[in-house]
Design a protein around this nucleic acid. Structure first.
Lengths: 123, 123
DNA sequence: GTACATGCAAATATTTTGCAAAGAC
DNA sequence: GTCTTTGCAAAATATTTGCATGTAC
């Protein structure tokens, strides 16, 4: 897997604040006109397959975020779409079930949906 | 919320085996030519909003399944797409985090991806 | 130099929507 | 009878793909 300028830019943006981002968000955050949306999609998919990125789908849009060692997930506000990181406590649970079914886990995704403090006040 | 013939058919199909199903799968399982795909989508969305159904997204396709009291999630095989139900152990974890952030949880989703026993043998 | 990555444009596929007709309560 | 739901067809939108060109190693 080659590290190109485009791939580096995409990774940099995702590492800037570790907030999950869609392909479109990434394209707009990187102003470079040399970057194409297809490339963003292809890069995100490639990184995801290698394990560098994790993915969550919200309202049929895929959001990607850096998979760090302290593996975590997100709690997302369905109003303002802001995401709050939460630690992952799933590894033991998942491992047990997987062993029972002889299922080879590649990755997992967890998302909690709700309304954040700010949006609750606005209602 | 009115219980129409279409809605009843959709719910019946989902309750038949409790396996997650996409709108398209549901349409094909119900042979009735009087059922339209739009209706399936609208019904699934309506049921989801009321809480009767839960949803998981795999490869950009939404799968819906009946939300039962013994709340559970799925472990999905990325090869054959078969899904294995697993119990949910998340409620306490989620509650703690939510309280800390004053986040009002509406629902959550968890999916474990991997390769099932059968597909491993085929490789 | 070669194999992989990108840009561009066009295609895919799922999901959504507007509106008139039908149906539930 | 009223208000919700449906069917149909058309639109919206995220994502994918083919192919020629460019670029990392």
């Amino acid at each position: 897997m080659r590290m190109t300028h485009q791939r580096q830019m995409i990774l940099d943006v995702l590492k800037k604040d570790y907030q999950p981002k869609s392909a479109d968000m990434i394209l707009h955050l990187i102003h470079d006109p040399k970057l194409n949306l297809s490339t963003v999609y292809r890069t995100l998919d490639a990184f995801f397959n290698v394990g560098i990125l994790s993915k969550s789908t919200i309202d049929n849009i895929n959001y990607y975020y850096v998979t760090d060692h302290k593996h975590h997930h997100y709690m997302v506000c369905t109003q303002c779409k802001k995401m709050f990181p939460i630690d992952c406590h799933l590894d033991e649970i998942a491992k047990d079930v997987a062993e029972k079914h002889e299922f080879k886990i590649t990755h997992h995704d967890m998302t909690i949906y709700g309304i954040c403090k700010e949006c609750q006040l606005k209602m």
